[in-house]
């Protein structure tokens, strides 16, 4: 990997200067709340849920308890298809710990079908085995789910999105 600057060895980095080290223990347990709890339970059951705002006549995914546009409550939950469109994507070669992947992971923002006005959805992955030159913005994709017994109510209950070949 070519990076600019002088590369330090681990020994140089940790031991050449007198320094103080501290390794904090930071653990959190966020309550998922009304809307995201419904969303995660939906995923466990193989469904993608959204909410519909009556005042703005729009559907958003993931669901929200309130509409950030008109600030009114959103109580109408709707089941959305597990298909969508690639909003944008990247071939990612670096992990969060800065080590290099040989095979790219393909994060993509998926606009879920059935969301309206400005489409919405979530960050997920495209099947990393597809040929890179086939992936295009605007391409239709479909969720590939984990086996029902392995789903836990988590965004990773969807393994990845596969490309739909029809266009």
């Amino acid at each position: 990997m070519d990076v600019r600057g002088k590369r330090l060895t681990l020994d140089e980095f940790m031991n050449t200067e007198l320094s103080v080290k501290h390794y904090p223990e930071m653990e959190y347990n966020w309550a998922t709340g009304v809307a995201i709890t419904k969303f995660l339970k939906g995923l466990k059951n193989g469904k993608i849920l959204g909410t519909y705002c009556n005042d703005c006549d729009r559907t958003v995914c993931p669901p929200r308890m309130f509409c950030e546009e008109c600030f009114n409550p959103m109580n109408h939950y709707v089941k959305l298809p597990d298909t969508g469109v690639i909003n944008t994507f990247s071939l990612a070669f670096i992990r969060t710990d800065a080590t290099r992947r040989e095979k790219a992971e393909i994060p993509a923002v998926i606009d879920i079908d059935g969301t309206s006005i400005s489409p919405s959805g979530f960050l997920h992955l495209i099947d990393e085995d597809v040929s890179h030159d086939k992936i295009k913005i605007g391409m239709k994709v479909k969720a590939v789910w984990k086996d029902e017994k392995d789903r836990i109510g988590d965004i990773t209950d969807i393994k990845f999105f596969e490309l739909l070949e029809d266009d």
Partner: peptide, 27 residues
């Protein structure tokens, strides 16, 4: 502890009350 609401939902509840009291539309 307020576990039935996410932090965003909890703040929303307080905000709605404040805006009603103040007679303002935040938007």
């Amino acid at each position: 502890s307020i576990r039935e609401l996410s932090y965003k939902e909890m703040v929303y509840q307080a905000a709605v009350k404040a805006y009603s009291d103040a007679q303002v539309n935040p938007r």
